[in-house]
Amino acid sequence: MKIEITNLKKVIKGATVLDDINYTFTGGRIYGLCGKNGCGKTMLMRLMAGLIYPSFGTIRIKDKILGKDISFPESVGMLIENPSFLNDYTGKQNLEMLAGLQKNVDKAEVRRVLEQVGLDPDDKKKFYKYSLGMRQRLGIAAAIMGSPELILLDEPINAIDADGVQEIRAIIRGLSAENRIIIVACHDKSEMDYLADEKIYMSEGRIIKETENDR
């Protein structure tokens, strides 16, 4: 899989929030978007997910232009900003509802991803009673359910306890072995040093530096 971003620019209400973004992402790697809050990390992920479209430039996914040839990436999972689920549904019920929109996801897959992120598929607790950490785990489960080719994770370890951080790291590293493109946004440099194969530093809507981690 390959994603090519060319001369990307996003203008909102006259303000340029992303400017002259050029980058090529290839499968089997984890990319870390690094930078302070407001630098453009989340906006770039929203564009790649097809939630919004560029003002200028192109995002080409497997030779199809996003917003022209396809409305959304054909295989994408995402955790962008705060995960949103139905309050009166259990975690399992929420994922089963989402699975109904995906042809390749059955109940066995829902159970598998819940267990993978450390949640009990048989827990009867409703989402509104979930802790912040449990909500984050459910959001990660939703993002990886069905083994999408592109996975976008915005601050995936937010609100996760120390033991859970190790589990989430292992999950993300394991997913990268299957030719997926995984993009993780995180303001914690040490976390990116550990997790990412390539780090992309952003500031004021622009890519200012790229580095590759030794593995």
Rank of each mutant, 00 (worst) to 15 (best):
Pro121Tyr: 10
Lys189His: 13
Ile183Gly: 01
Met192Ser: 02
Tyr31Gly: 03
Val184Leu: 04
Leu79Pro: 00
Asp20Phe: 06
Glu4Val: 12
Gly205Glu: 00
Ser176Cys: 05
Val105Trp: 05
Gly100Gln: 10
Lys126Gly: 06
Ile207Val: 05
Met97Ala: 11
Tyr194Leu: 14
Glu4Thr: 10
Asp122Tyr: 10
Leu119Phe: 03
Val184Ile: 10
Ala141Arg: 08
Cys186Gly: 05
Ala108Glu: 14
Asp88Thr: 11
Asp163Gly: 13
Asn179Lys: 15
Ile70Leu: 04
Gly174Pro: 04
Arg173Val: 15
Glu149Lys: 15
Lys10Pro: 00
Val184Cys: 05
Asn82Ile: 08
Gly77His: 00
Asp214His: 13
Lys2Gln: 11
Gly91Ala: 11
Lys62Pro: 01
Tyr31Asp: 04
Gln166Ala: 07
Ile160Arg: 00
Gly133Asp: 13
Ala99Val: 03
Ile12His: 09
Asn213Glu: 13
Glu4Trp: 00
Ala177Pro: 06
Asp122Ser: 15
Gly35Asn: 14
Lys64Asp: 13
Asp63Lys: 11
Tyr201His: 12
Gly205Cys: 02
Lys129Thr: 10
Gly67Lys: 02
Ile168Gln: 07
Gly100His: 09
Ala141Asp: 05
Phe56Thr: 13
Thr90Lys: 02
Gly57Asn: 03
Lys92Gly: 00
Gly35Tyr: 01
Pro54Tyr: 03
Pro73Tyr: 01
Glu198Val: 10
Phe25Cys: 09
Tyr130His: 03
Ile140His: 01
Ala99Thr: 09
Lys10Asn: 01
Tyr89Thr: 03
Arg137Asn: 06
Thr58Ala: 11
Lys107Pro: 07
Gly27Asn: 12
Ala108Thr: 11
Met202Lys: 00
Lys10Tyr: 09
Lys103Ala: 14
Leu66Thr: 02
Gly35Asp: 08
Leu114Gln: 11
Gln102Met: 14
Gly139Asn: 12
Gln136Gly: 08
Ile172Thr: 07
Ala49Pro: 02
Asp20Glu: 15
Ile80Pro: 02
Gly139Tyr: 03
Asn87Gly: 08
Leu86Trp: 10
Ser55Leu: 08
Asp154Gly: 08
Ile171His: 05
Arg29Trp: 06
Ile160Tyr: 01
Asn7Ala: 09
Ala170Leu: 09
Pro148Gly: 10
Gly100Thr: 07
Asp69Trp: 07
Gln102His: 14
Ala177Tyr: 10
Gly28Met: 06
Lys62Asp: 15
Asp63Cys: 07
Asp161Asn: 05
Arg112Ser: 10
Ala141Thr: 08
Gly205His: 01
Asp193His: 13
Ala159Ser: 13
Pro121Gly: 04
Gln116Leu: 15
Ile65His: 04
Asp123Gly: 13
Phe72Met: 13
Gly32Asn: 09
Glu210Arg: 13
Arg135Ile: 05
Leu18Thr: 00
Thr58Gly: 09
Glu96Leu: 15
Phe56Asp: 11
Lys103Asp: 14
Asn7Pro: 01
Glu74Met: 03
Ile157Ser: 06
Asn87His: 12
Phe72Gln: 14
Asn179Val: 04
Pro148Gln: 12
Glu178Asn: 13
Arg169Gln: 11
Val184Asn: 00
Leu195Asn: 01
Ser71His: 12
Leu138Gln: 08
Tyr194Arg: 14
Leu153Ala: 05
Asn179Asp: 14
Tyr53Trp: 04
Met48Pro: 02
Glu115Gln: 11
Ile168Asp: 07
Leu47Asn: 00
Ile160Phe: 02
Ile61Pro: 00
Glu81Ser: 04
Thr42Trp: 12
Met134Glu: 06
Ser55Ile: 02
Phe25Val: 12
Thr6Ile: 09
